[in-house]
């Protein structure tokens, strides 16, 4: 690749253009140009400040509802664990009783034991059912809370 010699650029064309441009060149007075630039910058900064404020408020709202959502989720989780524990405890007692009945199996008392087992099942089932109902209720409550939070957030973003 051939490189262009710098000296070749400084020919008569160069001189002609320099002379003509120098002749045509005039000072460019400010004429309020700087002031207009500074005014635009000031206006821009005010707009930016307002936008930042709005964005900060939206962020604060988002944080608030996120915290509310998280709190509701934690409460629901604790309740879930607690109630599940309760139901599990009832199931454990039932299994324990069944095991004891099997180990101490006596054909003479079969009818009595069968009746007792049915009774235990009937006693345990409502406990499990109650847990599930409560869990569903809590889930619903959490969903409502999150729905409201998201709705408010969407409004604040508008």
């Amino acid at each position: 690749m051939t490189t262009i010699d710098n000296n070749k650029l400084r020919l008569t064309d160069d001189e002609l253009l320099s002379t003509l441009f120098a002749k045509a060149m005039q000072p460019v007075p400010d004429n309020g140009f700087t002031d207009s630039v500074m005014l635009r910058i000031e206006a821009m900064q005010t707009k930016q400040a307002v936008q930042t404020q709005v964005a900060t408020l939206a962020l604060k709202r988002w944080n608030f509802w996120l915290n509310a959502g998280c709190a509701a989720a934690i409460i629901a989780l604790l309740a879930y664990v607690g109630l599940l524990g309760q139901a599990w405890h009832a199931v454990q007692i039932f299994v324990e009783r069944v095991l004891v009945s099997v180990l101490t199996f006596d054909p003479e008392t079969l009818l009595v034991r069968a009746l007792l087992a049915i009774r235990q099942v009937v006693e345990t089932l409502p406990s499990v059912g109650q847990t599930l109902t409560l869990l569903l209720g809590l889930g619903l409550l959490w969903l409502i809370l999150m729905g409201q939070a998201l709705q408010k957030l969407a409004k604040s973003m508008q």
Partner: peptide, 26 residues
């Protein structure tokens, strides 16, 4: 830089030619 040099060479040549055609002598 080499591209700039070619643009300068071509641009100044064309511009000077146009001005000479319009009565400006250098």
């Amino acid at each position: 830089e080499n591209t700039v040099k070619s643009h300068l060479l071509r641009g100044k040549k064309n511009m000077a030619a146009y001005l000479r055609r319009n009565g400006y002598e250098g």
